[in-house]
Nucleic acid binder design. Sequence first.
DNA 1: CCAAACACGTGAGAC
DNA 2: TGTCTCACGTGTTTG
Lengths: 220, 220
Amino acid sequence: MVVAADSGEEGERPAPAPASRKKERGRSHSEAERKRRQRINAHLATLRTLVPSASRMDKAALLGEVVRHVRELRGKAASAGAGVIIPGEGDEVGVEEEDDDDRLRPRRVRAWVCCADRPGLMTDLGRAVRAVGNARPVRAEIATVGGRTRGVLELEDVCCDAGGDGVVAAAATTGRGRAVALSSLRAALRAVLLEREEHLATAAEGYKRPRFSGQITEVQ
Amino acid sequence: MVVAADSGEEGERPAPAPASRKKERGRSHSEAERKRRQRINAHLATLRTLVPSASRMDKAALLGEVVRHVRELRGKAASAGAGVIIPGEGDEVGVEEEDDDDRLRPRRVRAWVCCADRPGLMTDLGRAVRAVGNARPVRAEIATVGGRTRGVLELEDVCCDAGGDGVVAAAATTGRGRAVALSSLRAALRAVLLEREEHLATAAEGYKRPRFSGQITEVQ
DNA sequence: CCAAACACGTGAGAC
DNA sequence: TGTCTCACGTGTTTG
């Protein structure tokens, strides 16, 4: 129950409607607010259908489940979104730190290389990653289609598993020992790409692909 | 402005504090409500950090972005789960004809092998597929995680590109020359798996995995 | 009776 | 000025 509150005194208003101007205002206001609410709740209901077993859940708990689910999917899609490894048409090599959701310990680095296929390519890649010190390969994937090959591998710091908060990240960026040295890794991969000329000359594989300019795109 | 409503008549109440009992009630109520609000908003803030470019967004729009993002990730995860190149824990080799959507010409055969990782595995696989006559590799993919490796490759008949309706399929099933001989391919892959013992003995890789029984599951 | 959860209307601040 | 969003307190319902 809300009191009317505006009895009569409203004389000095220049408004054309001296009587119930505030009431119109207030009604449109509450109406707009109700509209806003139902927009939010509509999205909330949609989220209820999206996340598994979130029906009959507290609105707050639902949001909690949503954030958990998003984190879970983010992890899966990260390991698989990179799984969309369709080899591109240009030779390129890239090294990037995993977009760390939280600042949790084991520093991850994802490196990938795309070039024309050739025998012994993965052997060379394996040699390249082994050349990088203090790195442990946690996941390696290589896919070739139509003579083009893309390889992606994820490395993890091998030493630190206890302690070490930001020191790993710092070491990774500066490349000063103790962690995955991004620059040297990139250099090793780049060397793998540059080896292709000789191999192509010797092996003379069947697929005649249009040659590229020798330009190697470096990402990040 | 809320009307007081309880002026004096309160005689039959057994409450010990007849005067300001409601005020304490109301305060704890609003307090609890405020706590609930901040629970929700905390999760909302977490979601803001999780979805990309959702900062400075309307609360409703944020939820809209969240549902969109969840749908997107859900699709990616599904496509990744379909890719299913996660190496299993058992050694296995399989050969299967592509479930041909339409009866279009180039017959496709997908073969895969899953075993413990070892150096030179893909080299052996390549040798195995080359040993199969009249087959052209159109797609090859190999993924290793944690010492386990799964490789899948798709072959296509090399000769027929004009004419030849059902003859290819017939040849593929019977394995009578002129097309991909499934049995010989399976045998070649099986041989690759059996080679692992010696390689493991010589290479002595880092990952100490529990040995398997030597049983090789054959699918289809 | 109380605790939790929801929708509602309203005042305050930001363009 | 109006419009929009947000947080707050409150009434009401459910267990």
